[in-house]
Write a protein that binds this DNA or RNA. Structure first.
Lengths: 171, 171, 171, 171
DNA sequence: TTTT
DNA sequence: TTTT
């Protein structure tokens, strides 16, 4: 029961999201995200660049958001966890594939300044998130947005879990 | 609608937690956490150390865990967010205090190898996970712990929101 | 010797940076960054927003970057650490102020799609960062950008330390 | 020039580290780290556990630390980045393997309360890290540990880069 | 005081 | 395959 398994990425989508559906109808969205790092070669002084590609898979409510609003080139912030899946290749051999999983415990944020770019800008993006409840030193109890569940930040989470919160959910 | 506000700490409690209760009975736990960094002075070659103290406040369910299991000296991992509160000093002036808030969106993990140290060791908190070999995983159907709510990792979150999840809660 | 003290922020500058200089001529840049979180009130269904303001201070080389390229409204990613300073108020009393410190161990990235906005876009932004050195399983040692020092990601770090790396530094 | 690629893990080694050497003599250490998450099944109420295994590779100075001090079962905190390597299988086909790379930009910390466990506990573990330089509002310039280079926190980094800092390095 |  |  020990464990932190956290991935934080900021990068761009290499292609439009691919969305599939589970048996229960829940969507699963897959994207490829590129993160690039640059540096100056110490000897030649030339600028170098290296791009890393990540497979990111979104579950639940957040998968809908990905489907609707992300496109090739979109820049996003992602917080998720690592998962390595084992799968069978055609030759019968085992293969392993590592993905960044963004579920209800993860987050996604769109970082394009013009998010609404080509798709209608007044869409109510945010989700149903609860900030903290109550003041640290509860002497003068300020009104607090209690009774919410979800992620903060105007970002999105997987929200796969409960239908209890549908009233909080814009999708 | 822009925002990531995240704090990650690993450190030790400087004293036992202080727990208070809100009007609705919800607990709020405050702790002081020390993080220390060390380095070697480049000129003198002497080892240097600097300790930083953080005010961390826990809300909801996680506050109960803090109350019950954390003590002075406990080493923990904490994931929360920054919040600066404004308060009135006795002289009528405004003061500001910055805290790390750990609510339902945050996490806490106990890092003491023997967590049960002085408080009864058979608590279902056990740490030190199985460093056994091999990745055991079903082939086709990705085991998604869907239908669950909360944080992963065997860690604790604030869980302030709904009483709907009490059955998910080990405390 | 225990300690992780890490802050990650994505937000916007509330005003232009304030830059000062230390006795040795090193710049120090201070900015105010707003992170906002939004959620839907569970009862009223109304959208709520809360903005948190952070004092962020940049040291070293990165302070120059902040000075030159950041302006009121700029959106940035910041990775730093918490530090609480004690200072004397005019009334002789102690005050405490908590800041996010971004030094050589931290990072900053500009997230505005058009960074070059009003200042000429072809500026060689990146810094002197080193990716990893060598392949994990060093069987077929691919050419590796060895011999660099600094942060990766095309981001900026404090670089306060050594003048040894000036040839890697665009400033 | 966009990119954040960060992984944070807390887990235990599944086996002793495997250390190899590059042509230039630099060590490379590979470890398997297990992170486990637990949750209560929402329907059955039974406790569930899932263990994830990560391949982590350390470069540079930190690889030496790993070699000397980590063993099967060691609990560590790791901060690194994702990298997917392409390699040739015996059948001539391409394979991909994703690892967490910990180089000079990453960090490692030992979390076992008795780090010196079986190897002598007074070893000067820490590294050559620089805290921040100078005070944010440089009015009364406190003495600052200037002129250091490296990671903070009493943790270790790859330090692959310069031989200039050997005097700061305990290894 | 920012941003959406 | 993205982005600067």
């Amino acid at each position: 029961m020990a464990g932190v398994n956290k991935v934080i990425l900021i990068g761009n989508l290499g292609a439009d999201p691919e969305v599939r559906y589970m048996q229960n109808g829940d969507p699963v969205a897959n994207v490829r995200i590129a993160t690039s790092e640059t540096w100056k070669d110490r000897n030649t002084g030339e600028r170098q660049e290296r791009t890393e590609w990540h497979n990111v898979v979104f579950f639940g409510r957040i998968a809908e958001v990905v489907k609707q609003y992300l496109r090739k080139g979109s820049k996003i912030y992602v917080e998720g966890k690592l998962r390595t899946r084992k799968w069978q290749a055609q030759d019968g051999q085992d293969r392993y594939s590592t993905e960044v999983v963004v579920d209800i415990n993860g987050t996604m944020q769109m970082l394009d300044s013009r998010q609404g770019g080509g798709m209608g800008s007044s869409v109510p993006f945010d989700d149903a998130p609860p900030p903290s409840r109550g003041s640290g030193r509860p002497s003068q109890p300020q009104p607090q947005p209690a009774g919410n569940v979800g992620e903060s930040q105007g970002s999105f989470n997987g929200g796969g879990g409960g239908g209890d919160f549908d009233d909080d959910i814009p999708f």
